[in-house]
Design a protein around this nucleic acid. Structure first.
Lengths: 206, 206
DNA sequence: ACAGCAATCGGATAGCTATCCGCTTGTTCG
DNA sequence: CGAACAAGCGGATAGCTATCCGATTGCTGT
């Protein structure tokens, strides 16, 4: 338990040498396009051309634009996952579930906000794809596990999805770029919303 | 206050006769395509062809696929809006803000679930477009107004966006079709999440 | 009526996603 | 080492979104 694989562009088994080489070429080309011209320049055609391979190969490796974009931030995703699975408290183990959950929701907001351009582009390409992605499964497993400790009688599966709905890229973008709020304000409102949901010893509640 | 216009495919001023005729043709054709072949058949090209007009005209009238799809459920949206603005309690006026808010979140979940196919297709075409749409503005105004009564010190703008994030089509789809839950279970979890947020006299809390 | 103008029309166009399938290449096993 | 085969390759293709602009048409005031 707790062993979650983020299978973004990773084949289940071993991979032929040319396939591995092409995956790397694709990722390099995509990263270059992203850095030079922003996420909207990362199209499957452009990536294929920049990598010097056929567009069919890009699709075989990464399935669709969303997965390719998520693969570009895979290392940050892994870092994030390690921080809440085995990092220092309050995000990692060692703190009470309520505090860990709060820390996680804050960290997730920052995580999304910190990669907003890529993540927004990924969501834009396919809003429903996130639910089937490795990262989302990892987040959901973590949140629902904490919820089961916190509220044994509740429906942790649904509650976890509801809590995760505070941080889709489109919402973070809307609140920060559209309405001009900071992530600090967003996190404060999340706290406020959940203040009565579980015991929060350290809260002043102003 | 409380006077919200749902400007879906409605021009600000008067409209030329041919333009009005074409808008109706477009809506008829789109509705027919939707009924016959489902929402994914409602493409701008297909609608233009079925309506017997140019594709440019469809774009001038409705801007993009998302707005065209939302226009197809405009009458239900108006009905929904009237139900929470001036319908019977607890959704309409006459009930305490907390109960009205709860009733609204439940009704919104049902509203989205009841039009899930169209709304999911609309969100799919452009996940961020919803925030700039008439319906969303109406919902947000209503929720933030209730929140200001309920929690005068809180940031009603952000809180309203967070509460509305419980009901995007993609999430409702994921929970119902993907995970197999009912809207009743979703609404129960929303209640549970918000049980501590405001006074809920009638709640048994099991 | 009708001239003039602004609004509208419509299809050509560019660029994107995703699929398909005949050809090529790495890998395995005798 | 070499054959056999599964895996991978890549570009042609279909269909979609969105834009653009010359041609057309409804509306207004005289």
């Amino acid at each position: 338990m707790g062993d979650v694989h983020l299978e973004i562009g990773r084949p289940p088994a071993a991979e032929r040498a040319d396939a591995a080489r092409n995956r790397q070429r694709i990722l390099d080309a995509a990263a270059r396009l992203m850095a030079d011209q922003g996420p909207e320049a990362v199209t499957m055609n452009a990536v294929a051309q920049a990598a010097g391979i056929g567009v069919g190969t890009v699709y075989r490796r990464f399935g669709d634009v969303t997965q390719l974009l998520l693969a570009l931030v895979d290392h940050r995703e892994l870092q994030f996952q390690q921080s809440f699975l085995s990092g220092p408290a309050p995000l990692g183990p060692g703190e009470k579930p309520g505090e860990r959950l709060r820390a996680f929701l804050h960290a997730l907001t920052d995580h999304v906000a910190g990669n907003i351009e890529v993540m927004l582009a990924a969501e834009n390409a396919s809003p429903t794809a996130i639910y089937a992605s490795g990262p989302y499964e990892g987040w959901h497993l973590h949140v629902s596990t904490l919820l089961r400790e916190l509220r044994p009688g509740a429906d942790a599966t649904v509650l976890a999805d509801l809590l995760l709905s505070f941080s889709p890229p489109s919402l973070i973008w809307h609140l920060t770029k559209g309405r001009g709020f900071t992530t600090g304000q967003i996190k404060a409102s999340i706290d406020e919303l959940l203040a009565g949901f579980w015991p929060q010893p350290g809260r002043t509640d102003h």
